[in-house]
Amino acid sequence: MAMNGTITTWFKDKGFGFIKDENGDNRYFHVIKVANPDLIKKDAAVTFEPTTNNKGLSAYAVKVVPL
Rank of each mutant, 00 (worst) to 15 (best):
M1E: 10
L67N: 13
N36E: 06
V62W: 02
P37G: 04
D25G: 07
N54A: 14
I7S: 01
G24T: 03
A61V: 06
G15S: 06
K55M: 12
A44P: 01
A45V: 11
I40V: 09
D38E: 14
F48V: 00
P66V: 14
F48H: 01
V31S: 07
D13L: 11
K20L: 14
D43P: 03
G56V: 07
G24L: 04
N53F: 08
N26E: 11
I7R: 01
F11R: 05
N53E: 07
K42Y: 06
A45H: 14
V62Q: 01
K12T: 07
I7P: 00
G24H: 05
A59N: 02
V31L: 10
E49Y: 15
N23Y: 10
T6R: 12
K14R: 13
A45M: 12
V46W: 01
N54W: 13
A35R: 11
H30Y: 08
K33I: 11
K63G: 03
G17R: 02
A44T: 05
F11Q: 04
N53K: 07
G15P: 01
K20A: 07
F29W: 02
D25H: 10
K41S: 09
K14F: 11
G24F: 04
L67W: 13
M1P: 12
L57P: 07
W10E: 01
F16D: 02
M3Q: 05
F18E: 02
A2R: 15
K14G: 06
V62P: 01
P37F: 04
T52L: 09
V46S: 01
V64W: 02
V31G: 05
K14M: 09
T51Y: 14
G17I: 03
K42D: 04
T6S: 06
T6N: 07
M1W: 10
I7Y: 01
G56Q: 07
A44D: 03
T52M: 11
T51N: 09
A2C: 13
D38A: 12
G15K: 08
R27C: 03
V34H: 03
T8G: 05
A45Y: 12
L57T: 03
V64R: 01
T9P: 01
T47V: 12
A44E: 05
A35Q: 14
Y60G: 12
D13R: 11
T8W: 08
I7V: 09
F16C: 05
K42I: 14
V65A: 08
W10C: 03
A35D: 11
V62L: 05
L57Q: 05
I7H: 00
G15A: 06
A35H: 12
L39N: 07
P37T: 04
E22F: 06
T8V: 14
F48S: 01
F16M: 04
N54H: 13
F48W: 01
L39R: 10
V31R: 14
L67M: 13
R27L: 03
N36L: 04
V62E: 00
A44C: 09
K33R: 15
E22Y: 06
Y28L: 05
A45T: 11
N23E: 06
A44I: 07
N26G: 05
K42H: 08
V31E: 07
A61F: 09
L39W: 10
V65N: 08
K55G: 09
V65L: 14
T8R: 10
A61I: 05
N23H: 11
N36Y: 05
V46Y: 02
D21T: 03
N23D: 06
F18K: 03
L39K: 11
T51G: 11
F48L: 03
F11G: 01
I32N: 15
F11I: 07
S58T: 11
E49M: 15
T51S: 13
D13A: 11
L67P: 14
G56I: 09
V65Q: 11
D21G: 04
F11M: 06
E22G: 06
F16E: 03
E22H: 06
I40S: 02
N23I: 06
G56T: 07
F16T: 03
P66C: 12
N4P: 05
K12L: 07
G17P: 00
L67R: 12
K33W: 15
P66R: 10
I19G: 00
T51W: 15
V64H: 02
L39M: 13
K41M: 10
D21M: 02
M1R: 13
K12M: 08
K41N: 07
N4T: 13
K55W: 15
A35G: 08
L57M: 08
T6C: 11
G5E: 00
V64Y: 03
A61C: 13
D21W: 02
N53M: 08
M3I: 07
D25E: 10
W10R: 00
L57E: 04
K41G: 06
D21E: 01
Y60M: 14
D21F: 02
I32M: 15
E49T: 15
L57C: 05
P37E: 04
T51V: 14
Y28G: 02
V46M: 02
K63T: 13
K63Q: 11
A2K: 14
L57H: 05
V46D: 01
D13Q: 10
N53R: 10
V65W: 12
K33H: 15
A2T: 15
F18L: 05
N53L: 08
K14T: 05
N53C: 10
N26S: 13
T51E: 12
L67Q: 13
W10M: 03
K55H: 14
P66Y: 10
P66Q: 12
R27T: 01
L57G: 04
F16W: 12
T47L: 09
P37R: 08
M1S: 15
S58D: 04
K63D: 05
G15L: 07
G56F: 09
V31D: 05
F18I: 09
T52I: 10
D43H: 14
A44F: 05
A61D: 14
K55R: 14
F11T: 03
N54C: 11
